[in-house]
Nucleic acid binder design. Structure first.
Lengths: 124, 124, 124, 124
DNA sequence: GTGGTCTAGACCACG
DNA sequence: GTGGTCTAGACCACT
């Protein structure tokens, strides 16, 4: 089952993109697998305190990318296979890790400082 | 002089915020210091391939935070002191590193995997 | 409902200021009252052939003066009371009439000529 | 000689257009005639407390409309004839008086109220 | 040349 | 549908 407990909205990025990214990260983490049921728009809207239209927009985007199957009036299910999952993994690791490293470098940190900083923050 | 050579625009985040953060990171890194001259809107806009108005918005936000001094018709300069710099450092380390760790965790990485991933990407 | 049928854009003056003044004049005229619904950005923008953002800027300025109440997703309404209305009346009569008289004088008109000119144009 | 003593800058309209309009009003008023010498850019700049570039822009606009003759390094003179003067008169009376009447009407004034208001402000 | 502002179009979140 | 914001281009006044 997909968890949204650790979902935190970040400033600046469109919310529906953050939801989409959250789900993709879950896929990469293996926490979300093919056939998993997605929470209904109404439930997720209540859980995250976000307008149902915005949830709908995120689900629509996932559908457009072929990652979920929705039938009118019915529940939505993850539609994953090895290729899709691998593609998402590459996409996320390249982009996210790339921008993470870029951020750390811009702050003038050495590789050692960056690593120890992350290790220090890992427990919190 | 402030360098924007290593500036990479990330999709989804407002560009003006990315510019703002890039400058703040430069301050934390010590690469940007009090009195430093900022590139003009036109110069930076040409360099980054971005509309001058977007640069203006980033500069205006920094000016509102008291980090830049601008006068019409004249150049803009960094206005920093120890307190401001330290405040930015804390702000960045808390927020940026926090969201970095959060991202890595959401991708299901162990601390060891995350660290080795970052080390691997560091050289690129 | 607020009417914009007699709105004529004058060249040189920022459009958003003209819209703002038009509304203030309606308030002074008594044609706009507390609680009146404002036309939405899109409606007014289509009516006047102006970008919605320019309407937005006028409304935002009025909101900053406390003359309009806006909530995201909902309509905008006039927020007036006797004090605000009187303040606008004074503001307009002083500034507008003052600049009108100044204009007529600069054109070298005598008081009599100016009056007869205005009377002649009144019917058009 | 052209007087700029009663020149008052109004909010919103570009300054160079206001200078241009001021001169046109002087022409309509008969206070400015063919062959009249214009104050040098430097003098007018000092008199009005406005940047020389802005004065230059106004003079350039007047030149483009064929209302003044300037020779490099020499003084500028009004270049008027009956046709030009009449054209300006019509232009100003139509536009200015039209927008004046429009303003007064929008304030909900009757013709009589408007006239008496203007007469009252005439002396100040 | 510089920064400041106005107009415009597209997108976002919300009711 | 609503208002809010980001990006873009053009113009203004000033050094």
């Amino acid at each position: 089952m997909i968890s949204f407990e650790d979902f935190i909205s970040v400033d600046g990025i469109p919310i529906y993109l953050q939801i989409l990214r959250h789900i993709k990260r879950g896929v990469v983490a293996g926490a979300i697998q093919n056939g998993d049921e997605l929470p209904s728009r109404r439930v997720l809207s209540a859980l995250l305190g976000i307008n149902p239209n915005t949830i709908q927009k995120a689900y629509k985007a996932l559908e457009d990318e072929g990652l979920i199957e929705s039938r009118a009036g019915a529940k939505s299910y993850m539609s994953l296979d090895v290729d899709k999952t691998e593609k998402i993994r590459i996409q996320l690791l390249e982009n996210d890790v790339g921008s993470i490293v870029s951020s750390l470098k811009q702050m003038g940190l050495s590789k050692e400082d960056a690593v120890s900083l992350i290790e220090k923050h890992w427990e919190n």
